[in-house]
Amino acid sequence: MTQLSDLRKSYERAELSEEASHADPGEQFSKWLAEAIAAQVPEPNAMTLATVDKRMRPSTRVVLIKGFDAQGITWFSNYESRKGRELAANPWAALQFHWVELERVVRIEGRVDKIGEAESDAYFASRPLDSRIGAWASPQSQVISSRAVLVANAARYGAKFLLQPPRPPHWGGYCLQADCWEFWQGRKSRLHDRLRYRLGSDQQWIRERLAP
């Protein structure tokens, strides 16, 4: 059996220099995301979301990015889930993308707010029918006695709403407005490239290199 301490990899695919990176982190993220999609890495839109509860205990889970523009990074979820409750108590969060095949990581920190109801309605209406029913059927993060509860709930709401389930009031979108980005590119000999962008007091991005 392979020992965990013996697992190693040499990162040699690419480099990340100040000259080749964009001065705006949003533009740099768009470039890397497009490259991840073009490279057909598994689920390039998957990102880890970290939140903190009232006791200052962190928790993480994987969610899917559904939008990105000047306002921030958008995803959708159940407002009454654990992450929803934690964001209601503490709106500061962190996101991380890990594109293993490209030897890249992007970390983003900032404040999270709910998006408008109209935007949530529009996205919900675009989802497959079973996903829309699922949003009603799952009391996300709550303890349930068995999977049969979910199946019964799905059948009940399917019969109630047929082909037109409305968006549940407890479900909708979030948007993280970043004030800190970090781009990590794996390099040989563990001398990785790390570029951090932080928002200065003048609301301009400051780009700086971090030791790996």
Results as ranks from 00 to 15, higher is better:
D53R: 01
K188H: 10
A34I: 13
N90Y: 11
E86Q: 08
V143D: 08
A50S: 13
A122S: 10
L162H: 14
R8T: 13
I144S: 03
L129E: 04
L162G: 08
K31M: 11
S21M: 12
A137D: 02
Q3W: 13
Q140H: 11
F97V: 05
E43I: 03
L16A: 01
S17I: 07
L4P: 13
R196K: 09
E80F: 01
A122N: 14
A46L: 03
N78G: 04
R85N: 14
E103F: 07
A38I: 13
L7T: 02
R61H: 09
E86L: 02
N153Q: 11
S21P: 12
W92L: 14
R61E: 07
Q28I: 12
R209H: 11
A94H: 03
S120P: 09
E12C: 11
I37E: 15
A155E: 12
Q164I: 15
I144N: 06
S131M: 12
P58M: 12
W181Y: 09
D53V: 08
V41L: 08
Q71L: 13
V112Y: 00
W181G: 06
G116E: 15
Q164K: 15
L199W: 07
D53N: 09
Q96A: 12
L195A: 04
P168G: 01
S146P: 13
V112L: 00
E12W: 10
L150E: 12
R104V: 12
Q28S: 05
G173A: 03
A70G: 12
Q204F: 05
R111H: 10
A93G: 08
P91R: 08
R132Y: 06
K9L: 06
R194G: 15
E117S: 14
E103V: 08
T74N: 00
L150A: 09
Y123Q: 01
A94S: 06
R190F: 13
A14L: 04
D69A: 00
H22L: 06
R187P: 09
G173Q: 03
